[in-house]
Simulated scan of single mutants.
Amino acid sequence: MTDYFKEALEYKDELIEKRRALHQIPETGLDLPKTKAYVKGELEGLGLEVKEYGTSGLSTLIQGEKGEGRCIMIRADMDALPMNEESGLPFASTGNTAHTCGHDLHSSIALTAAKALLKEKANFKGTVKFMFQPAEEIFAGSKMMIENGVLENPQVDRALALHTALDRETGSICYNEGYFATSSDNFKITIKCKGGHGAYPHTTIDPIHVAVNIYTNFLELIARECPPQETSTLTFGMLSAGSNSNIIPDLAEMQGTLRAYSPEVRNKLKSRMLEIIEGLKISTKAEIDLDFFTGVPSLYSDPEFTREIVGYLKNSDFDGELIPDTKIMASEDMALVAEKVPTAYFSVNCKLPGNNFSHHNPGVNFDENMMPIGLGLMLTAVVNWLNNN
């Protein structure tokens, strides 16, 4: 077995250079013109043909020279977040968007993997497909690229993805055989009522009273209807109503998120939320609309495929720690790929000492020393799986 983790260290300067270039052009959503141009330019500079999907989705293929075989896909998300950066880094972004989730590191790893695999193509059979996707943060990029055929021509047999992790300092890789990340269902509730004078509540239909009932009933679903052995959360992040102390308003709005690992629990809780709304419409006489406006399923890391990749890692030159049974409450639109193709998902720790911020925080920073580990992971997994399958 080639020492791919040792080989990955030779690309460290290049990994850092690519990451910092991407870090300074953060873009959000589906349309990433600067990021797409950079990634496409890097791939075409290697002599690769790039196929576009939608506005900013990109894919390319590398064919092994040891013979025909199967197809494995590496996914990298490219989008950033709509926030200012306060990291103090000399290459920090200066606008109102920032790479505070580490997607710039993911894309740098995938771009460098393409270069390394081109040099290695005499040593493996089959095909490596790359999926560079926008809009992971809004759960739209994978869906768009799947609908446009990224899993076809050639048909993808297995898929791989990784993510930065901030639980430990650099040197470990985390995985789980089964559900790795929760589903996510973001919802908005609009309550239309009859406002009036605060001194005469009996002449009104109070949307704040309705909102409080919804809040209480929804949270009780987790406490009383979710099986205790199942993990789920329901959080309200926005409640807006009224303008003055003695005016009962006509309107209230609420927004929140529901998360669960089990698809059965997810479906049950969503169904019960709708039932509660229908009951409150009758009991309060309010007009209530519940809209699940974005959602992704829980991310399933196929146990058999994950075990196989972990076996290759254990037999490789990786000298760090492999941490099993890792699950996160965040969500990932790689879950949509995993619904269609057996997928192995990993998180690579990269906490910097002294930087105690989380993902999505304006002050967060990531240890760039994780990138050779991520690259070694991808090379080890791809070459060994293709040659053994």
Rank of each mutant, 00 (worst) to 15 (best):
C101T: 08
G196T: 05
L61P: 00
M73H: 08
L22I: 13
M145K: 10
D77R: 04
T204A: 15
E14R: 15
K192F: 06
V296R: 00
P362G: 12
K129L: 11
A114E: 03
N388P: 02
G198Y: 07
D206N: 14
V150S: 01
L379M: 11
A8Y: 00
E177L: 14
V39N: 00
A80R: 00
H202E: 15
H103P: 04
L160M: 10
L46F: 15
R19P: 01
T343I: 07
I205F: 07
F366E: 01
S262L: 10
F91T: 14
L162M: 15
H163N: 10
I191V: 13
Y200P: 02
S347E: 10
S316H: 04
N361Y: 14
F132Q: 02
A223W: 01
K268C: 05
I309T: 03
L81R: 00
K194D: 08
S245I: 14
E147N: 14
L105S: 10
I109D: 00
E14T: 13
Y312H: 07
G149A: 13
G195V: 03
E332L: 08
E220F: 03
P263W: 11
I214K: 00
L105A: 12
E220H: 14
E264S: 10
L32K: 01
G376I: 04
F318Y: 14
K340S: 09
R168E: 14
K119P: 05
R259H: 09
G54W: 08
V50G: 08
N267V: 09
G67P: 07
S316P: 04
T97W: 03
N213D: 09
K285F: 08
K314Q: 15
E321H: 11
